[in-house]
Design a protein around this nucleic acid. Sequence first.
DNA 1: CATAGGCTGGAGAGCGCATACCGCAAGGAG
DNA 2: CTCCTTGCGGTATGCGCTCTCCAGCCTATG
Lengths: 335, 335
Amino acid sequence: MSTLSDVAQRAGVSLATASRALNGSPGRTVRPELQARVEQAARELDYQPHAAAQTMARGRSNSLSLLVNDIGDPYFASIASGVASAASRFGCIVTLSSTGVDATPRVAVLNMLAAQRIRALIIAGGVATDDPGLPQLSAALRRLADRGTRVATIGAEQLGFASVVLPNTSGAEALATALLDLGHRSFSIIAGPDNRTSSSQRASAFADAVRSGGGTVAANQPSGFDRAAGYQAMDRLLTDPLPDVVFATNDLLALGALRRLREAGLRVPQDVALAGFGDSDALLDVEPGITSVLMDTEEAGRLAVEMTLGDNAQPRTEVLGFELRLRASTGRGQR
Amino acid sequence: MSTLSDVAQRAGVSLATASRALNGSPGRTVRPELQARVEQAARELDYQPHAAAQTMARGRSNSLSLLVNDIGDPYFASIASGVASAASRFGCIVTLSSTGVDATPRVAVLNMLAAQRIRALIIAGGVATDDPGLPQLSAALRRLADRGTRVATIGAEQLGFASVVLPNTSGAEALATALLDLGHRSFSIIAGPDNRTSSSQRASAFADAVRSGGGTVAANQPSGFDRAAGYQAMDRLLTDPLPDVVFATNDLLALGALRRLREAGLRVPQDVALAGFGDSDALLDVEPGITSVLMDTEEAGRLAVEMTLGDNAQPRTEVLGFELRLRASTGRGQR
DNA sequence: CATAGGCTGGAGAGCGCATACCGCAAGGAG
DNA sequence: CTCCTTGCGGTATGCGCTCTCCAGCCTATG
């Protein structure tokens, strides 16, 4: 493993010159001839800079860290994709932590990341608003930020950092309006856990929009955020007369509900219409097509990177766009 | 930002003692009283070790790197999930690179990783066997390995490193046998690109097993590896009389084919049976259920970590298990 | 022709930590 | 009671690099 001083020696220059030639130095230049000699020496020795040494000498690292609930979840995977591509444009190494939803393991991870002196931290995925570890998580985050790590969150603006805000409210409103326009009048909401801001935001914005548009919304029971929860929630809804539309606050819930409907022999949208939120890839192959609100999650990742690494002063929060995807599952309003 | 020497000073001990108290030292112990004093001082100062400095002093880092084609793809996301959880058990930081399928950008990434002096590298996802950048990729990989990085691959055993081998051959054989047992006789294969080993392995193993079981296999045309490719391949198949079964070498191809079949008004499995490979989550919500070969990709990630970080001498290659998932899409053989 | 000022190369001081080595004290064996 | 061993704390070196400071040269200017 050759070092910079090997390169310098071989090129017949000083360590300082070799460093300047290979990695540049603000406001300094190296005579082209020496520059070339150094570069050739580096090539001949197959020199690779030692990132840790650079980090130490420079006093800052070039790694960015992404914290997600579950990297196996397509939602987070898609964010990771955006983060990875954007970070590579900044020459940053991306480190990944998949911590689950609880606050406590996150605190542990944050401490490891503090040791890394990471340049930026992006947190995707919320924590339950009533998680007992929340104060410690906030404190750990605050410490990181105080020490120079730029923090941004995606869909967790309540933490008080730069944030990509999901179009929960605007998207849910737009969806509700569109469904009313289609002629639907009675709605049930499968809301997911009520201690997760994104699902409760979607649910309440949807309900408000429906009511102010003259529709009715049935009370709903909190649950999980995945297919199984959707299945169970739908199961409970089956005991009462069905509404025109079941709105699930995310796609997985909607898919779980769909499964229960199929098992009950009910047709979508003839017997009941169904809508989700997120328009994740999981909807791609389902028949009938499920109405949903498309969020460009890759773009969310990109924006978050931009907010932390971009040099131009970025706004502290940025609202992600959305697109309504009206599909067969909500019919054409001829009901 | 307090340093170890701050801690030592506050605790009234030397730097060395503080280091030993906080991070241990092989074969050395610290008197319990001093140990406690150091720990308290660290707590009071909110001391965090400087990972780069430790890396430098120790001469090795504790980061593991995962290289995938596309982290947004559920297959890779699932591997990443396994890798992340296993790596955290080893106290390793995971860095993620999502490089696409081409060899050349991978070489660039490998150079960055070389600078990181990473402890282990896990490569998931193959490269085309005829990629012009392949020799350079091999060379870069070899250099990394020579410098002490432990390399493992998932589904790319041809690179010559420790490897988790996908059950392409055994799984495809088992599937073919099962389909023959169901009474199917004529098969078409949607094989994906023929320069990707996993798809060509599955295709040829499947074809061999079918033939030796008395069935017939139609020649197939290479294509991509995603839904669009499956759609187009199915489109071409529609011009000829349909076989009993269409086997796609991965699930996304199968889903693309399914879409084309639906558009053509053909029913699965009544008009034609359909099978995929991988049993990814994408199949979860599709009706009818698609027969596939389940691979535990999370486990693959875990195994790869074990092979690189585990201290006990690991076998150089490990074959991933599989499970046949026979579902409605291949009928019950009453045809 | 003298001198200021820009350019560029080199010397050297750290960055924060682990660890080899040294020294001292206490305890056991002879 | 002495000598050797063992246990443990401290000192100091160096990991590989960046960057500040200084010195030399060359050019421009009065």
